[in-house]
Amino acid sequence: MTEGSRWRRCLGMLEEREAAARVRVEGLREEDARLAEVLEAAEIELDRGVIAREELVEALAASAAESTAVTEAEAERETAASAVPLPRGWLLAEASGAFSAGRRSGAVPDAGSSG
């Protein structure tokens, strides 16, 4: 084997390695582009999940605040209804807002007085 053929053989091997490296680089670039699309889709899905969770937390907070306001308003109505003064104590205001027959102490009419 001559020295020139050795160099040609060495040069051929280097060219084969270079061609293989180019093919590998091209394949990796294609895979990189595909993975970029997959990553973008995953990021969109993550953003949607975060938004959905935040909206749910806001809705639950608003619902809890509304429920608390309604409960407080009902409690105020019940308190106001039970605090209504009744003539002579013959009717009693119940916590439910209904009235019942009964007597309060000190409100019994004087049966023995003439007037």
Rank of each mutant, 00 (worst) to 15 (best):
8 R>M: 13
81 A>Q: 03
109 P>K: 01
78 E>P: 00
112 G>Y: 12
105 S>T: 07
3 E>G: 09
83 A>I: 03
22 R>A: 14
90 W>L: 10
46 L>C: 06
78 E>F: 02
45 E>Q: 12
48 R>L: 07
57 V>S: 05
7 W>I: 15
44 I>Q: 10
99 F>C: 05
41 A>G: 06
1 M>I: 09
33 A>L: 08
115 G>V: 01
94 E>G: 03
91 L>F: 04
16 E>H: 06
7 W>A: 15
111 A>D: 11
26 E>G: 01
19 A>M: 10
39 L>E: 14
14 L>S: 09
7 W>L: 15
82 S>P: 02
82 S>V: 12
93 A>D: 02
17 R>H: 05
17 R>S: 10
48 R>Y: 00
59 A>C: 04
23 V>Y: 07
28 L>G: 02
112 G>L: 13
29 R>T: 02
95 A>N: 07
19 A>Y: 10
109 P>H: 02
79 T>G: 07
13 M>V: 14
56 L>Y: 01
25 V>I: 08
50 V>G: 00
96 S>C: 01
7 W>G: 07
13 M>K: 15
108 V>W: 09
71 T>P: 02
54 E>F: 00
101 A>T: 09
1 M>P: 07
46 L>F: 03
7 W>H: 14
2 T>Y: 05
14 L>F: 04
47 D>G: 06
5 S>P: 02
60 L>M: 12
81 A>F: 05
115 G>P: 00
64 A>V: 04
89 G>K: 01
3 E>Y: 10
74 E>L: 15
83 A>H: 05
35 L>E: 10
18 E>N: 12
57 V>L: 13
34 R>D: 03
81 A>M: 09
45 E>P: 00
35 L>H: 06
85 P>D: 01
58 E>G: 02
78 E>G: 06
36 A>V: 04
110 D>L: 08
111 A>Q: 11
19 A>L: 11
7 W>E: 14
60 L>Y: 05
53 R>K: 14
4 G>L: 15
